[in-house]
Structures are given as C-alpha cells and as structure tokens.
Design a protein around this nucleic acid. Structure first.
Lengths: 216, 216
DNA sequence: CGAAAAGTAGACCAGGAGGTCAGTTTATTT
DNA sequence: AAATAAACTGACCTCCTGGTCTACTTTTCG
C-alpha cells in the first residue's frame, strides 16, 4: 500500500469536508433535530446516501461539526501569565472573540444551540478541557487582583460577561440586524469591539491600550 | 352549578394555561422542531388530541408560548427620561434583567432559540414594538451623553452588552453550571448582578449606587 | 328537564424522517 | 489487464410526526 496522499485523502476527505461545511450551515440555522440529512445532502450537492456513507449517522455528523467548532477556539489568553499586562491580554481576548463572531458565526450559533439544549454532546469537552481552561484563567485573574493590577472582580462573572457580550454578535445577529436596520459590517464589529473593551477594561480599573481606544 | 365565571373560564382557560406551561418547558429544552405535541401533552398530563383541541396547530401553540414570553419583558427603563439618573436606571435595568434570568429562564431560552433560528415568528414584534423601544432608549442614552452624565459610548452596543451579559445566565445556564461546579443560587445571581453592574456603570464613567455595590 | 355547547379521547392517515441494502461505478494496486 | 478496494446511489423499510375524524361524556343554561 503505497501512499498517494493527495488522492487518497482528497476523494474522501474532500467530500467529508464539503459535507461538514454544508452540515454546519444547516445545523446552525435549524438546530440538530430541525435539520434533515436530506437537506444537508442537498446543500452539499450530493445524494443523501452519500452523506450517510461518510458519516454513518446524523448524530456522528453533528458531532464532527461540533468538534470542528471547538477546534477553532484557541486564543492568546490560553497562554497568558500572571506577569502579563491584564489590559493588553483582556483587550486582545475581547478583540479575538468578536472577530470570531464575525468570521465564524455559524460555529458560535451551533455551540449556543448545543448549550441551550443542555449540551448532551459535550461531556468530555466540558468535564476536562474547558473546566481546566477556566480554572487556569481564573487563577491568573485572581493573581492580577492580588497584585492590584486590576480591581477586585469575580473572575467567573468577568469571563462570562466577556463571552456573552462578544458571542452575542454571532448568536443574536438576527436581532442585532433588525434593531440596527442593517447587517453588521467589519467597521461595525470593530466599533462594537471598542465599546466592549472600553466597558470591561474601564470596569476593571484599567486603561484602554491606545490601539483599542475609540478613534474619535 | 350557578353561573360562576371562575368555573366557566377555569375549565378551558386553566387547561390552556397548563398546556402553555408544559409547552414552555418542552420547547425550551428541545426547540420548536425538536418538540413533539405528544411530549407536550404527556408533560401536561393530557391526551394529545386534547392539546390540539385548544391549539389547532403546534405552531399556534408555540406562538402562544412566545407571546407569553414577550409579555414578561417590561422594565422600569421603559419609562426612563433624559432627566433621570443614568446610574440608577442602568443599575436597576441590569438588576431586573438578571432577576428575569433567574426567575424565568425558560422564557429567555425560548426567545434565544427563536432568534438563533432567524426569528421567523417575530416579525410584528421586531418591526414595531422592539424597534421603537430601542430608538427611545437610544435617544435617552444619547441625551445622557450630551449632558455629559455618562461617557461617550455607542448606545446600541451598550444595550447589546447589557442584554448579552444578563441573559447569559439563563441561556447558557448549562455551561455556567458545569464550569462553576454547581447550580447558580440566588446569592450567586446577586453576585453576578453586582459584577455586571460594576463593569457597565464604571465603564460608562458612573459611580455604582450604594445598594448595588459589592458588599465586601 | 333537555338541548346545545364544550371538553375528552381512541383510531387512524399521509408524509417525512433516519437508516439499510444490494448493486453499480470509479479508482488503485499488482 | 485483471483484481481488489473505495466510492457512489436508487429503491426500500420502519418508525414517528402533526393533524383529522368520529363518537362519547360532561357542563352550561334557558
């Protein structure tokens, strides 16, 4: 079995990717139960049977989509240290998260729906990866508080606030669009970014780094 | 067996109410398409046909549930004036919204799902009620800025931030619970409340009213 | 009382769902 | 070129869904 990587991987893997992408779209719009394999197949431009050939069940396809979503969520905050500048780290984290809402809204929506439904497909992720990530970040924030680099603020609720107010622009984009009267463009996301950074950082007793200040 | 209104209304209305309540539970957990009329009927302790007797279609039942949800969302901010104290108004608004997340999480979840699915059942609501509400609140915030009562901050993104970071505790309660290790109790909600108030108000250049300050 | 209206409920139906199977086409290896 | 493996697909099956129909019981109220 010599390995012709490009073709071996390409035929199958390429289709798999195409299916996952189509599934992402459909799942994000209709939820897991609301989406049909047929619909996903149509979106991918393949017969239904072909989709089931690559993913034995609808659920395993969904889990592949979810996995792909989770794989996107790395950030510079992951490697933050107690010695780092909180203003810089937090501002960049908020910036990254809002960029994610702009560039990968479907992923955010799928995750949101999964949580709303009780997160039945997230056991391992939650019980290990995210919990330990959280503990690490909380420890760093606490140490910033102890060093009096930032005002005393509960690290959990601080992080929840950051998540909520950044993911909001992906998950609730429909509402945001209708209320503003037009779709958010890149400049609007940047505007939102600066607003959230201003609120959170000032709220923590920090000065907003120059590059994130509202360009008057 | 005299004509007593309470019983006339009670047989039908009481059942209707019971059904709506059951539907709220089921819809919030499984979404519209994920819920079956049978499941709602079982939850309400009635035969399926009986549910369809009161609500001709699954969708009309869903709309009744959604309507009930929207009817809960009144707040003191609705009547706010440019002459009011922004610190007080905003703090109370945040407080009210977090209370809603605690006392009516199902409503919040149903609304969130509706938006995630593109809000197909919210046309009239959005195009009239909420848009005009928004315009009114934006005007007041802008006037606060002009009076230099608060720092310059985009009213839209300020309101989105408040919504996001308060509703988060209902919509993402599953995630919050798993990350914290235990369910949020009333004290925890109050703690979150103070955190959000601190962040937002300080971020707007305001002083947190005494009654909302973190009781050290 | 007695009729009409309101409420309850089982049997049933058409349609769409996820998934299987058996058979065909295409690609890869020797 | 032959053989083997991978990719593909139409026909089909079972199960569940929202919703209807019909018939029965209970309430209401002149």
């Amino acid at each position: 079995m010599t390995v012709n990587k490009s073709s071996e991987a390409s035929v199958g893997e390429k289709n798999k990717q195409k299916i996952v992408q189509a599934a992402e779209q459909v799942f994000a719009q209709q939820g897991f139960k609301g989406s049909s394999v047929q619909q996903i197949a149509d979106t991918a431009g393949l017969p239904k049977t072909n989709v089931l050939y690559y993913f034995k069940t609808k659920q395993s396809l969904y889990q592949a989509v979810l996995q792909h979503t989770l794989s996107l969520w790395n950030s510079r905050f992951d490697q933050a240290q107690a010695t780092d500048d909180p203003a810089e780290i937090l501002a960049e984290y908020i910036s990254e998260k809002i960029d994610m809402s702009r560039t990968h809204p479907l992923s955010s929506k799928i995750f949101a729906m999964e949580i709303l439904n009780g997160g039945p497909n997230l056991d391992t992720y939650f019980n290990h990866e995210q919990v330990s990530w959280m503990k690490g970040r909380v420890a760093i924030i606490e140490s910033w508080i102890n060093q009096q680099k930032i005002v005393a603020v509960d690290p959990y609720y601080l992080l929840f606030t950051i998540w909520a107010s950044t993911q909001h622009y992906a998950d609730f984009s429909e509402q945001v669009t209708r209320l503003r009267g037009e779709k958010m463009k890149k400049v609007d996301f940047d505007h939102a970014k600066r607003t959230v950074i201003q609120l959170v950082l000032t709220g923590c007793g920090l000065t907003v780094p120059l590059c994130y200040q509202s360009s008057q």
